[in-house]
Amino acid sequence: MERLIFDAAALVAIVFAGLMVAGRDPIKSVLALAVSFFALAVTYVLLLAPFIAALQIIVYAGAILVLFLFLIMLLNVGPERPDGVRRPVQTFLGSLSVVVFAGLLLGMLRASGARLPGQPEAVAADALPDPKALGRLLFSDYLLHFEAVSVLLLAALVGAFVLARRENAQ
């Protein structure tokens, strides 16, 4: 049952990711990605990471992608139109590298998955890891990282403000 749900969710995520890349209209792309992220959140729950799943939806779907939507609407970015400039080398090389890259990546991930040591026992669904434990880890072993990220966020906040401010605005 879980396996089926996982496969379905992963499939949804992949399909909508493809739609995101293929779409011409940025709004549709954002929405497709939102669906993809939502599906990913479902997979996270199945992979025993409900906290991250909630975070995924709150931060990615609820904040970052909304920010994208906001920006697209603010700038009134229309669908991509052909600009008449052909870049055959770029396109060819790009496509080629995507194919090669995808092949390599999948192959390596497969190999790495196969090389993992003995699988731990299947975890029962009601033994979902407590977010508390995650919090403990975050505020003990990873405290420095946490603080660094908080500084990064502050820097990003200030940076975004400075960048987007109108120069003549006081």
């Binding site: 770029q90 090389l93 790009g94 590298s97 995507v98 890259f101 390599l104 990546l105 390596m108």
Partner: peptide
């Protein structure tokens, strides 16, 4: 593109 070509080279090396 250049970046990804480099990445591919790196992956090949690791592989």
């Amino acid at each position: 593109l250049t970046f990804f070509l480099g990445l591919i080279a790196l992956l090949l090396f690791v592989a």
